[in-house]
Write a protein that binds this DNA or RNA. Structure first.
Lengths: 205, 205, 205, 205
DNA sequence: TATGAATGAGGTTTCATTCAT
DNA sequence: TATGAATGAAACCTCATTCAT
C-alpha cells in the first residue's frame, strides 16, 4: 500500500485547513466556529477535513501547537545573531512592536492566541505544557540575555534575571492584550515607553 | 394586585443565578456552559431562570456588567480617602496584589473577565463601550492621581500622565494575565517589583 | 360554605376572559396565543384564569360554544317576526351583509370561527355536534322558510327545500370566506348579486 | 467536485418531506404538528430535514406554494383545449366535483388549504400575494371564459364578468368548505345544483 | 482520497399548569 | 379567590461526526 499522494501534499492540505480554521476562530471564536465555517473558508469538503484531522478539537490543538512553535523558533536564531545583550533585547521588543494588534492582520492572531491560553487553563496537562514551554523557552531566552548582559557589565548585577524575564514578558503581554481588547490603543507608543523604563532599570548603575 | 414577592427577593434571585452562572463560566467557559449546568448549580428550575433573564447571552452580559461596575466603584471611594498620590497608587497596587489569580477564588473571576474582554472584541458596540469605560474611569483615575502627584512635586512633571496611566494598567493586566494562564506564577513578587520600577520612574527627579 | 362571590360576578369574569381570549385567537390563532397573552389582555392574573377554566383548551371550547349559540338565537326570533318567506330570506341575507369581514370588527370573528370549524374536523364528536347543529338549526330554519314560501305560492314547488337550504348556506359561507382571506373583496356587491340569483331561481315560475 | 447526488434525487427528497409534512398538517394542523411527527412519517432523520428546509415554517410555505402552483397549472392547459365557453366552465366544475372532500384522500388537502388561507390572514405580505394570485389567475381565468362566451353569444352580455368570476369561486369554495367541515355533506349534489343555477343565469337571454 | 447527505444527541427556549402565599 | 413565581416536559434547531458512493 504505497501512499497515493506525497507527504508534502498532505502537509500542504493540513496547513490550508489550519489557516482556514485560524481565520474562523479569529472571527467567531473556537466554539462558535462550526466545521462548516471552516469548510466554507477552505477549498476542501467536510469529509476531506476529517481525513486530515480526527476532530474539531484536534484542529484547534494543532493550530495552537503550530502557533506556539512558530513564535519560538522565529526568535532563537535572530537572537543568536545579535552581538550585545542590549541589541538582543531591543530586537525582541522591535519584533513585538511590529506585531501591533491594531493592525487587522495581527489582531486575529492575538485573539486566538489569548483565547487558547485561557482555554488551556481548564486543561491541567495543557496548562502544564504551556507553562513549561514558557519557562523553558521564553524565560530561558531572557535570563540568558540578562545574565550575559550582567556578565558583560551592561546590566545591573543585583537584579534577579528570572524576575526580570517574567517582567519583560508581562510587559509585552500586557501591552498586547490591552491593544487587543481596546479601541485605538497607542500600542507602539506605550510599548516603547515601557521598553525605555525597563532598560533604564536594567542598566541602572 | 400587590406583588407577591418583594423587589429585594427578585434581586436576590437574580444574583443567585448570576453567581451560579459565573461559577459555570469560570469552570467551562461561556459557550461550553449549558443552561442545564447553570440550572444544576443554582437551586432553580430552567423555567425560573428564564423568568429572570431572557437568554443565556443576557445572563452573560448582566454578569459582565456587574463585574465591570463592581471593579470600578470598589476603587473610587477608597482612592478619595488616601492623602498623597503615592499612597493612592500604592493602595491600587495593593488591591491588585490581594487579587492573586493563583488563589482558587480569584482565578475564576480572572478567566471569565478576560474571556469576556476577548469576546467583546467581536462586538463593536461592546468593544467601544468597554474602551470608553476604560478611558473614562480607569485611565481617568490614574491621570488624576499622577497629575496630583506632579502638582505636589511628588512625581516627575515631564512624564505624560496619560501614557503612564496606560502603562500602569498594562502592567497590572500583564501580570494578572500571566498569573492566570501560567502555573505557579510568582504574581506577587513580580507585581511588587514592577511597582517599584514604575514608582521609581515616576518619582525620578 | 356559602360562595363568597355571586354567580353573576363569576359569569361576568368568565365573559371577560372569553373576550380577551377571542381577541388573542383572532390576532394570532389558538395555538400561537399563549395564556400569558390572554392574561395580558384581560385584567386578571394567570392564577385567576385557572380558577374559571381548567385549561386553555377549555377556554377555546367555551368560546366556540358561546359563538355557536349566539349566532343561532340571534336569528330565530327575528325570523319569526317577518311575514312572508321572501322577507325572511331577505332579512337573513341582510344580516350577513352587515357582517362584512372587510370591517375590522368582523374579520376577527370570522377567522376564529372558520379556524374552529377546521379544528373541529379533527375531533369526530365535535364535528358531529356541529353538523347536527347545522342541520337542526340552520338547515331547518331555511327549509322551514322555503317550504312556507312554496306553500304560499311564493317559491317554485319543484325545488328540494333541503338542497336549497344547503345552497343558501354554501353561498353565504363562500362569500364570507373569500372576504376573510382576500384583500379588498367586494363582499357586499357579490353577496347581493348571489342573493338575486338565488331568489330569482327560487321564485322561478 | 461533482455533486454526489443528482438534483433530481434532492428534488425527490424534498417532495417526500413535503408529503410527510402534508399528512401531518392534515391530521393535526400546522402548529400542533411537530418536526418529530414529520420525521416519524418520513424515513429521514431530523437533521436531514433541516438540510432541505431551514425551518418548520419554510416547509409549510413550500408546501402551500406547491399546492397553489399545482391547482393553477392543472387547469390552464385543460381549459385551453376546450372549445366553447360552456365546455370550459363545465370542465372546471367537473374538476371540482372530482375533488369531493368527503373522500378521505381529498379532505386532508382541503383542511390544510383552508387553514393556510386563514393563517395567511395574519401575514399581510402573504395575504397580498395570495390575493394577487387569486385575481391574476383564478379570476382572470373566469373573466376570460365569460367574456369569450359573451362575445360568442353564449352568455348574457349585460352581466359583469368580474362579478361572475368572483361568484363562481365563492360558490366552489362555499361548497368545498361546507363539505370539509360537515359530516355527510351532499357535496356533489349541491355543487351540481349550484352549477345549473349559475349557468342558467349566465345563459339567460 | 474526496464528497456532501445523513445522523441524532444535545442545546436553547417556550409555555401550560401548579401552588405557596 | 387572587397572585405571579416556579416547574419541567416538550418544542425547535444545530452541528460534530459518519459513511455510502
Amino acid at each position: 500500500m504505497t501512499p497515493i499522494v506525497s507527504e508534502e501534499y498532505k502537509q500542504k492540505k493540513r496547513q490550508e485547513i489550519l489557516q482556514s480554521a485560524h481565520v474562523c476562530f479569529a472571527e467567531k471564536g473556537f466554539e462558535a466556529s462550526t466545521v462548516d465555517d471552516i469548510v466554507a473558508r477552505s477549498k476542501l469538503s467536510k469529509g476531506a477535513i476529517y481525513n486530515y484531522f480526527k476532530s474539531k478539537d484536534e484542529i484547534y490543538l494543532a493550530l495552537m501547537e503550530g502557533q506556539t512553535n512558530d513564535s519560538g523558533s522565529k526568535f532563537a536564531k535572530a537572537i543568536a545573531e545579535r552581538e550585545t545583550s542590549l541589541e538582543k533585547l531591543n530586537y525582541l521588543i522591535e519584533a513585538y512592536l511590529d506585531n501591533d494588534p491594531n493592525d487587522e492582520e495581527n489582531i486575529g492572531h492575538a485573539i486566538v492566541h489569548y483565547e487558547f491560553r485561557l482555554y488551556s487553563t481548564r486543561n491541567p496537562k495543557l496548562k502544564d505544557m504551556l507553562t513549561k514551554r514558557y519557562r523553558d523557552f521564553f524565560v530561558s531566552l531572557l535570563t540568558g540575555i540578562i545574565k550575559e548582559g550582567q556578565a558583560a557589565g551592561e546590566f545591573n548585577k543585583e537584579l534577579d534575571p528570572e524576575t526580570y524575564a517574567d517582567i519583560f514578558w508581562a510587559i509585552v503581554n500586557g501591552a498586547t492584550l490591552q491593544a487587543t481588547i481596546l479601541e485605538d490603543y497607542h500600542y507602539k507608543h506605550i510599548l516603547r515607553e515601557m521598553q525605555s523604563i525597563f532598560l533604564e532599570k536594567l542598566s541602572s548603575k
